[in-house]
Amino acid sequence: MSVNDNFFGIRKGLLEFIVLLIIAAEKVYAADILKQLSQTEFATQEGTLYPLLSKMRREGLLDYEWQESEAGPPRKYYELTARGREQLRETLEYWNSLNGTVKKLAPK
């Protein structure tokens, strides 16, 4: 098993965190998120992203507004709610503490 396979579950679990990070940076619609993810280890397909976005919206982390697109159906542009920002802050904090632990334990 390669490192890549070992981290499959962890990447999956971290996806929500990554999506929060992307949406925090700017208002985006789903295709933008997928494009940004595709350049990272978190490359994802619509089939996974849409259910995740809907879940996050239901949990009050995100909100969206409709915007007309020049071609095709209108798009949902997502942004974080106050609760989403709070969640992102907490997750970042936790992530940093994890990172700190790894660094502390790593052989110097």
């Binding site: 999956k12 679990g13 996806l15 929500e16 994802t44 397909q45 619509e46 089939g47 996974t48 849409y50 259910p51 995740l52 809907s54 879940k55 996050m56």
Partner: peptide, 11 residues
């Protein structure tokens, strides 16, 4: 390209 529908983690 769309990939199969998968439930979000935690669901």
């Amino acid at each position: 390209e769309m990939g199969p529908i998968e439930a979000a983690p935690g669901e």
